[in-house]
Design a protein around this nucleic acid. Structure first.
Length: 528
RNA sequence: GCGCUCGUAGCUCAAUUGGAUAGAGCAACGGACUUCGGAUCCGUAGGUUGUAGGUUCGACUCCUGUCGGGCGCACCA
């Protein structure tokens, strides 16, 4: 819809302009402040320029009114134009709000260490990533999702060590000396019991088994993580093992060296990441020859870029923000265009229950488990809160908010709008086929505006995706539901002379709600 | 100390990326046809957008300073 208007204006104006939705719909459906920027150049007042420009659009059948108000040019869409869009949408439900982008995108998210269950912080990144994936896919993008598994290095060793010591202490009842760092959640003890069942008690007798325990434990944890994700309806196209990538280190390292941006000092190999905005240079190979964590990420991104996507999006926890510069530098040194990598940061989440801090799970080692929260508020609600806020602001929410079944619960409120429409249709005895051909004319301003709002979904999706601002979608759905409830309260439908016209508008509203919800991973309800 | 980031109604958050009178929900108060589902709707009150400057026709948005919160400053992942 916006594109049609933009094109229509461009044909006349032949220059770039800002097209926006007026805050107050009584001004119009679209507006441009173009006259302000022309004022200086034309040496006329914005109001006069706007009035002149208005003239040129009066005859366009797309608009029923074009007006100049205090320098803005406002456009009201005609009923015929809106009707045409609605008819098409209802007749082509599957194609509604789609686009024909075809860029290939690799979206990496979650990538939590496979050393324990997912906690609430991981959940935010997971949910944002999944929504971005769904929206992008709907718009035609060729997106693949990927989870990078850190199955090498010290953390995995610590997992094995923790299992080993827990087994010794809890199962063999031997006294053990715990190191400073280890995994303390009670799930480690459960896992140790599981290990003794599957691998035999003797596994805890020999330190040489730690590696075996590491691998076994890592696989178990990955399974657990996948089931945590499945609990909110998230699946990945691909899991990439860090460990398996190390075979390719030589070729990645060779590329780095070609860039002349590596050097050796104190027996370690460094990259000159500070040349590209990093705070300091970084070690990639330690003096004992072991690669650092960054080396893994260098191979991984080398591998990613060789796979030839147009764009790479990584969603990281905000505590990793300092890491962006060095990875981008490394990508540049590998000979790739680092601007193709975009990093979205997901900020911290703090949870309340009844105004008090949400209790941490001892089982998890004093983290809040994602699965606990999902069990308490449900997948839909959790998705909705996380998606309603910008990803880069710290967020606090109270799980009790979702106990209410009324308008204070946005999920409920939106579903209720959808269900109401369903009920009205049921009462009327008609379905969408029966009303799709109805001509929409002589509508009240409220009815026209409701229809207009329902038809905004396509441009909301584009904005949300292109700006990587998923919160725009839930925001839109809330507003659309509110507009519907208001209209519904003020207008009778069944048995009135406008029955079929209103049903057609409602069908469009329901369609937008349904599609919009599905793209944030929620199935719209037909009955409450 | 340095870097990144956030600061909007009492609370939780939006604000078309520089545009019109900064908007929703919660909490408070007052209302609505004996309803196509009142699980909804309407109204009142609440703001110097942390603060001081700057840029311009126009700033929550951009720049500088300052205060406050968060995060980071590994050869851990």
């Amino acid at each position: 819809m916006k594109k049609c208007v933009t094109n229509a204006l461009y044909d006349v104006l032949k220059k770039d302009f800002v097209l926006e939705k007026p805050k107050d719909l009584s001004f119009g459906h679209y507006a441009t402040p173009l006259a302000f920027s022309l004022a200086k150049e034309l040496r006329k007042s914005p109001q006069i320029i706007a009035q002149d420009l208005c003239q040129q659009f009066q005859k366009n059948p797309m608009f029923c009114e074009v007006s100049a108000i205090s320098g803005y040019i406002n456009f009201k869409l005609s009923e015929a134009f809106l009707d045409e869009r609605a008819t098409w949408a209802i007749a082509h439900e599957e194609l509604f709000a789609r686009a024909d982008y075809s860029e290939k995108i690799l979206l990496e998210f979650v990538s939590a260490n496979p050393t324990g269950p997912l906690h609430i912080g991981h959940a935010r990144g997971a949910i944002i990533g999944d929504a971005l994936y769904r929206i992008g896919k709907h718009l035609g993008y060729d997106i693949k999702t990927e989870y990078y598994v850190n199955d090498a290095g010290n953390q995995i060793y610590l997992l094995g060590l923790s299992l080993y010591l827990a087994g010794k202490e809890q199962i063999l009842h031997q006294s053990v000396q715990w190191p400073q760092e280890f995994y303390r959640g009670e799930y480690i003890i459960d896992l140790a019991h599981e290990a003794s069942n599957e691998l035999g008690l003797e596994i805890f007798n020999d330190e040489a088994n730690i590696e075996k325990l590491s691998n076994w434990g890592k696989d178990k944890m990955l399974q657990l993580i996948r089931s945590n994700l499945a609990g909110v309806g998230i699946e990945f196209d691909n899991f990439v093992s860090e460990k398996s990538l190390y075979d390719k280190w030589d070729s990645s390292f060779e590329k780095l060296q070609k860039s002349q941006k590596t050097y050796t000092q104190e027996g370690k190999t460094w990259i000159r990441s500070s040349d590209l905005g990093d705070e300091k240079d970084r070690v990639v190979i330690r003096d004992d020859g072991r690669p650092t964590y960054l080396a893994g990420d260098i191979i991984y991104h080398d591998d990613k870029f060789q796979r030839g996507f147009d764009r790479y999006i990584n969603i990281w926890g905000a505590d990793h923000h300092g890491y962006i510069a060095r990875v981008k530098a490394a990508i540049h040194f590998l000979g790739f265009d680092e601007s193709r990598l975009e990093v979205i940061l997901a900020q911290m989440v703090s949870l309340l229950k009844g105004g008090e801090p949400y209790k941490m799970s001892k089982r998890a080692g004093n983290f809040i488990l994602m699965s606990d929260v999902v069990a308490e508020v449900g997948s839909d609600a959790l998705r909705f809160v996380f998606l309603s806020k910008k990803s880069d602001t710290q967020l606090e929410f109270d799980v009790d908010m979702f106990a209410q079944e009324d308008s204070s619960n946005p999920i409920f409120y939106i579903n209720y709008a959808h269900a109401r429409i369903n009920q009205v249709f049921a009462k009327s005895g008609k379905d969408s086929n029966a009303i799709v051909g109805i001509k929409l004319e002589n509508l009240s301003e409220d009815a026209t505006n409701l229809l207009y709002s329902a038809l905004l979904l396509p441009e909301v999706l584009e904005e949300a995706f292109h700006q990587r601002q998923v919160q725009k979608l839930p925001e839109y759905l809330k507003n659309l539901a509110a507009a519907f409830h208001k209209f519904y309260n003020e207008n009778r439908v069944i048995g009135e002379k406008n029955e079929d016209k209103y049903l057609k508008i409602f069908a469009t509203v329901a369609l937008s709600l349904r599609v919009g919800l599905s793209l944030i991973g929620i199935k719209a309800k037909n009955k409450m």
